[in-house]
Amino acid sequence: MEREWFLLKLALLQGAGIITKWRILEYAQKHQYFNFTAKEVQPLLSRKCDSFVFYNDWNFLTQEVLQQKLNGQKYVTLDSPLYPKRLKEIYQPPFALFYEGNILLLQQEKIIGFVGSRNVSPYGKEIVKKFVPPLTNRGYTIASGLAKGVDSCSHLTAMQSFGQTIGVVGCGLDICYPKEVFTIYWEMLKNQLVISEYPYGTPVRKYHFPMRNRIIAGISQAVCVVEAKAKSGSLTTAQLALDTGKEVFAFPGDILNGRSTGCLQLIQDGAKCVISLKDILEELPNFE
Rank of each mutant, 00 (worst) to 15 (best):
P43S: 04
G167Q: 12
Q63K: 09
P133G: 09
P43A: 05
R214L: 00
V53C: 05
I255R: 15
K129D: 12
P122T: 04
I19H: 07
E64I: 09
V248L: 03
T261C: 09
C273L: 15
M211C: 05
M211Y: 00
L8E: 12
R138F: 01
I267L: 10
P84Y: 04
I24P: 01
S220F: 05
W186F: 11
Y27K: 01
W5H: 15
P199N: 07
L70R: 02
R23I: 04
P285F: 13
V65D: 00
P133C: 02
E288V: 10
I90G: 00
F162C: 14
L7N: 04
I275H: 11
L284H: 05
N191C: 06
G253R: 13
L173G: 10
L70D: 04
N71G: 01
A147N: 10
V128P: 12
D79V: 11
T236E: 11
G201M: 07
P94M: 00
P84G: 04
D269K: 14
M188H: 04
Y185W: 15
S46F: 07
T141E: 05
V223S: 13
F287S: 15
G245T: 02
Y177V: 14
V181P: 09
G262S: 09
W58I: 03
P252Y: 09
A11L: 06
L10C: 06
G15R: 09
T236A: 08
M1Q: 00
S276C: 15
N35C: 05
L8N: 12
L235C: 06
Q107K: 11
Y83P: 05
C171F: 08
I24K: 01
G124Q: 08
F60E: 12
L82A: 14
C176F: 03
A38C: 11
P178C: 09
L45H: 10
G113R: 01
Q265H: 14
A143D: 00
I219L: 01
I24S: 03
G270N: 08
K21F: 02
L45C: 05
E126S: 06
P133D: 10
C153Q: 15
H208F: 09
T261W: 11
A250M: 09
L189P: 11
C153M: 13
F6A: 02
D57M: 06
I112Y: 03
N286V: 09
G15L: 10
C224A: 14
C224W: 04
Q239C: 10
K74N: 15
N102H: 15
L10P: 08
M188V: 02
G262K: 14
K39N: 12
V150C: 06
R138L: 14
I184K: 04
C263A: 11
K148I: 08
K85A: 11
